[in-house]
Design a protein around this nucleic acid. Structure first.
Lengths: 202, 202
DNA sequence: CCTACCGATCGGTAGG
DNA sequence: CCTACCGATCGGTAGG
């Protein structure tokens, strides 16, 4: 005998709700991109028909917007929290990088969507998200510049250094596997070490 | 008076050929992604109708395949050429990174498409491209490991280090501007320095 | 290079 | 939650 009632793609048991729809969308957007994912595929993943999705969402664009804005806002909040109360600039850069790297190992799908489909967002959501990302890059740049001024770092190209550090972390989402040889924490630790080296820690 | 004959999106002069179609596709794929680009948009960019494209290509998938496979093969060839005849492991890593970083500043559109739409490729092209990329990552990993064994580098996590170096270079395509403050050569030079730091050059 | 057209599929709505 | 259906658009072909 199969599970209770059918042999759907999904576990056939859990009731479909808004959260399940968002989760299925997240998985498929991460796998195939926003334009590469049809609502019929999201529905199929949940074992329902396409029109039924509209009981749990307003539109495909809404799914993307919520997902990307919430993720980006969390990234900024995590950055602020990570450096809060820490005075040493080296430690601030270490913690900022560690939390960013950790997120990209533990929230791979969100990271892939944010970095691939940001331009699929309608305004004003797109501008809002880009502004948060810009703020994050500038904050990292300032950490490098401050450390260089105070003689803790040797790196003078703080803008390039910030991009290098952030984007190297983003890429973790592309290769990290939960069942791989390294834990998310271990990867985050190693990458925060790389960040300090890029900054030119003396 | 306008240009010779019309006010098309394109310069109205140059005859459309296979190379012009590939170039328009490259620009639009880089901007909106493979699934986000319609053949009608490529045609519009060239000032012709969609069916006319078929005088210069076989299919949309063909455009993507040629573009991605040629680019990836060039990347591997450039890597081999960059380290050819160079014995010192530090200098090999420096040159391998510099040529890879430089390519991502000078071939931004190709890099964006390769890194965004690789999974849109049909087999066997997809597997071929992934194999070339894997080979490249393993080669960088081996350089780091060899340098660590010989005491030139301190980095032990050669696999993570290789990913960090390569992906940091890939990201150049996302922010580099030809009319920006730094030349492509200067960026490549700075990034190759970051690579040696990630590897833990003593 | 074009017009005319193909079947398929898209996101979304009507109306239970 | 469904069936039935909407107009729009997709990649691609026929046939000049």
């Amino acid at each position: 005998m199969d599970s209770p009632s059918s042999v759907d793609a999904r576990s056939t048991k859990a009731p479909v709700n808004a959260s399940a729809v968002r989760n299925a969308a997240l998985t498929l957007f991460a796998e195939r991109g926003y334009h590469g994912t049809a609502l019929s595929q999201i529905a199929g993943e949940l074992g329902i028909r396409t029109p039924s999705l509209y009981n749990h969402m307003r539109s495909k664009q809404d799914l993307l917007r919520d997902l990307v804005t919430e993720t980006t806002e969390q990234v900024w909040a995590e950055y602020e929290s990570a450096i809060d109360g820490v005075e040493d600039v080296v430690e601030r850069l270490r913690r900022a990088t560690r939390v960013y790297a950790l997120r990209h190992a533990t929230h791979r799908r969100e990271a892939l969507v944010v970095n691939r489909d940001i331009d699929c967002l309608d305004e004003p959501a797109r501008a809002h998200v880009l502004e948060l990302r810009r703020r994050h890059a500038l904050a990292i740049r300032d950490l490098i510049a401050e450390g260089a001024r105070s003689g803790r770092f040797v790196e003078g190209e703080s803008t390039l250094g910030a991009f290098a550090i952030l984007e190297m972390c983003v890429s973790i989402a592309r290769w990290f596997r939960e069942d791989g040889p390294q834990s998310a924490d271990a990867v985050a630790e190693t990458y925060s070490r790389y960040a300090l080296r890029i900054a030119g820690l003396r």
